[in-house]
Design a protein around this nucleic acid. Structure first.
Lengths: 217, 217
DNA sequence: GCATGTGAAAATCTTCACAGCA
DNA sequence: TGCTGTGAAGATTTTCACATGC
């Protein structure tokens, strides 16, 4: 099954593995699927299957060579080179994204930030000065192909358009709506509220003790 | 196929539909699957199939009664009553969550916020005063069953433990690691960095024009 | 005519059983 | 013996084809 197309669900898990592997680097040279499982909470069989899509990195009886595996996963995810991104929207969420420490491990860096609110333009957060959103042009020249959108719903489509015009081909979208973009542009949407909204579905129902006891009696 | 168990993937889409339906309420009485599709970007066939799991809300030739559908989806997701939640971690991300305007539409309200940093305890953000994380006790009494974790990785497991001890049965976790909790507790993890990390995989490769032309020639 | 609703087919993803190797 | 690797089975999800009803 070597050199198979990598399933979307596996691609979703790869960054999780990568994160855990980077943390395990200092623990030793190799890691077994069950050790990795204990860290990420994904069953070891699934992990082995995922790794099998891109060939033999494991040693039977031992486990996987951490360093080689990291390199391979980075290559597959195209994280072997660094990526620069721009942020649009320097409100509460945008500012948090700007200060988020977790991007560096994957080789991401935020190179510029924009807002359309005059009160925010010119301010500096985390060494980055907010620029006018009108200036979102020619990002291609600066080799920036990723945009992060953290503006209100009403503005997000227009911002997406500007980003695409400026050369962006990947968008991380925090606004709670669909973005219409050309097919070549990939959008990944994070919607905090919709994720929270399915939590109650999975939570156990309240026990109304009196009735519950009667029912079970 | 009526009164079938609702698939996990459908549950994931229900909040998205709900969001769109709430926005459509003012547009008219009913909405067809293709109109809804245009808003949410999910194909109409999938939408009809999803709705079919909980019975006939549509009128053939017309569409779905928006109001009834909203009620039904809210009931399924257990969003027909309001939910109070607590936030732990008032750093950049936590503060953004505290100010996030998107929760109210689903009936969520953040009732309290905690941090363990003395510099933050006592501060007020969005009318909520940050309390000492040591005080995370007896949330059950206040009818709070949802916790939102926005603390650094190292502290997240301990906080999860406190929340569970205090009576929480649902956790929205922003820290980039797995939380070990009893089976009855549902955890949904949002990891901004891992989502961003799979963007390059889907982005088109740079064309090195010279070579590309040669190769295709 | 138009849009919902549903059993069946197709595609995708996960789990199983066990072969292969250090 | 211990852990990886893989074809096949099983489960889940999506898509299809078309029946149904306003």
């Amino acid at each position: 099954m070597r050199y198979h197309r990598i399933p979307a669900e596996t691609v979703r898990r790869l960054p999780v593995y990568l994160n855990a592997l980077l943390l395990s680097l200092q623990q030793g040279k190799s890691i077994s699927s069950s050790e990795l499982s204990a860290i990420v909470g994904i069953n070891p069989l699934q992990i082995r299957k995922d790794f099998s899509y891109f060939g033999g990195f494991g040693t039977r009886g031992v486990g996987y060579n951490i360093e080689k595996l990291i390199k391979k996963i980075k290559k597959i995810l195209k994280l072997d080179s660094h990526h620069q991104a721009v942020l649009v929207g320097a409100g509460n969420l945008g500012s948090a994204v700007l200060a988020y420490p977790g991007f560096a491990a994957y080789g991401f860096q935020i190179a510029a930030a924009y807002d359309s609110d005059p009160a925010k333009i010119g301010k500096t957060i985390n060494n980055i000065t907010i620029e006018d959103a009108e200036n979102i042009i020619n990002l291609k020249k600066k080799n920036i192909k990723i945009g992060i959108i953290a503006v209100p719903r009403q503005q997000s489509q227009a911002i997406a358009q500007s980003l695409v015009n400026a050369g962006v081909t990947g968008i991380l979208n925090f606004s709670p709506c669909r973005l219409a973009v050309p097919k070549r542009v990939k959008v990944i949407t994070i919607n905090i509220a919709t994720d929270l909204a399915r939590l109650p579905f999975y939570m156990p129902a309240d026990k109304k003790i009196g009735f519950a006891l009667n029912k079970r009696a």
